[in-house]
Computed example of a mutant assay.
Amino acid sequence: MQKELDYFMIEHSYGGNQEWFWDPMMKIGGCAAVTACDSSIYFDCYKGTEGLYPYEKTALTKKDYVKFGMKMKPYLKPRRTGIDSLDIYMDGFGKYLADKGCDAVHMEPLHGTEDADKAKSAVIDAIDRGVPVPCLILKHENPLFENYVWHWFLLTGYDTAGDSCMVKAVTYGESKWLDMDDLWNTGHDKKGGLILYK
């Protein structure tokens, strides 16, 4: 069984990319804000919310996206230790949603200390309900995941056709299929986790 969410292009990019920012803090540590920006655009484009993305939805541009990122920055401000917990993300993005008068989107945490089967079920449920899943990975012992370390990104699809559950990870304007068990089992005590949009 394979399912992928419809997703948006920004010019030639699959979603947003923090490397577009001229602001050095956003370029280095803006991944949580980018994840919230992409979620906002997704909700406006595909889930019927209005006004979460304040620019033209039918022709998304890098220029508008960078402006949007700077609007999101105060809510998910890059900091020395990064947005290194699910609560910080939910608090920041929750304030943005409230300021925009959006009460249709709610968030629940699924901590990285939960087992991989629970995480896989949660991702499958979310994709089946038509919403992306923000994911935070802190440390990881597998060098294959070095681009996802201390990083927020979105999961937008799953594939359970084989022996494993693959998930579609979206970050830096690209998507890649990753093994969920390998991604989840980081080998470190300090864990990230998932945000489940309801």
Rank of each mutant, 00 (worst) to 15 (best):
R129W: 02
L76I: 00
P24N: 09
A122L: 07
V34L: 09
D163K: 04
A169Q: 06
P78T: 04
T35H: 03
L155R: 05
R79N: 14
D182L: 12
A116G: 07
M72K: 00
L97K: 12
G162A: 14
G157E: 09
E141K: 15
L196D: 13
L194P: 00
G94H: 07
Y46V: 11
H111M: 10
K191S: 04
L97E: 02
D84H: 09
D115L: 09
D159E: 01
E141L: 08
T186V: 13
S121N: 15
E146F: 14
C135P: 02
A59V: 15
G187E: 07
P109F: 02
A104L: 10
S164D: 14
D84T: 02
M180G: 08
K190R: 12
K191H: 13
G130P: 04
G29S: 00
G193C: 10
D103M: 11
K176G: 02
R129V: 01
I124C: 02
H151F: 14
G15V: 02
A98F: 11
K3M: 15
E4Y: 03
K27P: 06
E114F: 11
Q18N: 05
E56R: 12
E4Q: 15
L52K: 10
D179H: 05
T171W: 05
G101E: 10
C45G: 00
D64P: 08
K47M: 08
G48Q: 03
K73L: 02
K100V: 03
Y42K: 08
K120Y: 01
R80Q: 12
W20L: 04
V123W: 09
A169H: 01
P74I: 05
H151Q: 15
T35V: 11
I127Q: 07
E4W: 03
M25F: 09
W184H: 02
K139F: 14
P54F: 06
M1R: 13
M26R: 00
E146H: 13
V105D: 09
A33E: 01
G187Y: 09
V133A: 10
D91P: 01
N17Y: 06
V105W: 04
G16P: 00
M1D: 12
S85N: 15
A59D: 11
I88Q: 14
L155M: 11
E114H: 11
P143E: 12
Y89R: 01
T61V: 05
D87I: 14
L183E: 05
G82W: 02
V133F: 01
H151N: 13
K77C: 08
H188C: 10
S164E: 15
Y14L: 08
K139C: 15
Y7G: 06
R129H: 09
A104F: 06
K73P: 01
D115I: 12
Y96R: 00
K67C: 07
H140I: 10
Y14R: 12
V123D: 08
C37L: 15
C31W: 03
K63E: 15
